[in-house]
Nucleic acid binder design. Structure first.
Lengths: 231, 231
DNA sequence: GTAAACAAAAGTGTTGACAGTTTCGCGGCA
DNA sequence: TGCCGCGAAACTGTCAACACTTTTGTTTAC
């Protein structure tokens, strides 16, 4: 990635001297939490982070407040911030939401997005992706899957929807990988995406919505079945 | 173990002398913005608010940061915070979202909620509410409508969904009233709620979802038709 | 009379210092 | 030895002063 953070400052050439902004700290912490680089339940000490980022403590404080509002950390008065530990019920809540929200995204993307793109994605999921799943190469599979997901959300052209999906998706991002490892899940998911993309290529928006919802419902069912192995 | 620290816990409902917390300031400003007590585009000066609430300016600042994250105000660097002015496209985005989200809420509430409650609401919407609409008494009608809406969301039993709906609903709250004034809209809306509640009373969850979605789609269509009179 | 330049004022952004609370270690006592 | 209380250290919460940017008001040149 490394797409440089858009610095409004006219480039003075000074690189690491510039102090990190609140947004940058938030982004960095979000990434770490999503990757479970900082595990759930871990304490986040303001002084440590301040020193690490080379900023005053109040700035870290603002960042933690933002993360709290996004539901990624919990702040207990006088006792600091800990990475939110999501319980099972919340995971199911989120899947119920993803079902309708990503369904909406699929419908809108079908109506508004460029069909050639979906055709290309369809080829990808029918060909190369099938091999990846067969060989159990999950990392590149996940990468392509998330790229498609982002494409659909972007093509939907509804910023408020995009923001919402971003908020809830980042909470379960760490789980996705574990679900995909479940026996047979990856291949089932691939087939469902093929079906989804076929509907999108044909411009059948309602059908695309229905199929996306179906796909997420089945993912949730898998999760329910194997929950003891995941949490 | 639970030996209470004698003075550490400030009781929640303190006297009016205690300085307002960030959460209280946020709530107060949210209410004013929703009621258009502070109109869109108005500037919010930190010093003024600090003096009004009797708190240091930094606390107002934190509150404004929270409101910015909720999308209620826009903060321009070095120029202050102004109440977000929502453009038409965003309103339609929000209605697309409400369509699927409140549809989900209706389905879940039908599955999980107490049927007696829906029966009572149905009686209300078939009887007294009809009179209110006929007499054009919109204020009490809106009040009851919002109470039903909250009931459904609460009965859905999905806190993440509730939070989301809260976030987007408060942005359009000021508009709802204007939509209801549109010719025939209130009565159509009432009839749609009767249909919705009938499905809920019968325990037909999917039908309830479908009908709620239909209702919001038609509200959006009305909005589209009369947009010039509203914005 | 108009407009550009400058100075003062108002408002926002930032920071380090101070205060309050919790946690941890240590010494005394049964 | 166990543990109870006490005090110090670590950490979070709060704030008022300082620095910087934008806006406004005034003067001056054409």
């Amino acid at each position: 990635m490394a797409r440089a953070a858009p610095k409004s400052r006219p480039a003075a050439g000074r690189t690491r001297r510039s102090p990190a902004s609140v947004a940058q700290i938030v982004a960095a912490l979000r990434a770490r939490i999503a990757a479970q680089d900082i595990p759930p339940g871990a304490k986040l000490r303001e002084s440590d982070l301040a020193e690490e980022f080379g900023v005053p403590r109040t700035r870290v404080r603002d960042a933690l407040a933002a993360l709290e509002q996004r539901g990624l950390v919990e702040r207990i008065p006088n006792r600091g911030a800990v990475v939110m530990r999501l319980d099972l019920s919340q995971v199911f809540d989120i899947y119920e939401l993803r079902e309708v929200l990503e369904g909406l995204a699929a419908r809108l993307a079908t109506e508004r997005g460029p069909r050639e793109r979906w055709r290309r994605e369809l080829d990808l999921f029918q060909g190369p992706m099938k091999d990846l799943v067969a060989r159990n190469e999950l990392d590149p599979y996940i990468e392509r899957y998330e790229a498609l997901r982002r494409s659909i959300i972007e093509a939907a052209g509804n910023p408020v929807l995009a923001e919402m999906l971003d908020t809830i998706y980042e909470k379960t991002q760490a789980l996705i990988r574990r679900i995909l490892i479940l026996p047979g899940r990856a291949e089932v998911g691939r087939q469902q995406h093929v079906a989804l993309l076929e509907a999108m290529v044909q411009g059948k928006a309602e059908l695309a919505e229905q199929r996306r919802r179906e796909g997420l419902r089945s993912a949730r069912a898998h999760l329910e079945k194997f929950q003891k192995y995941i949490l």
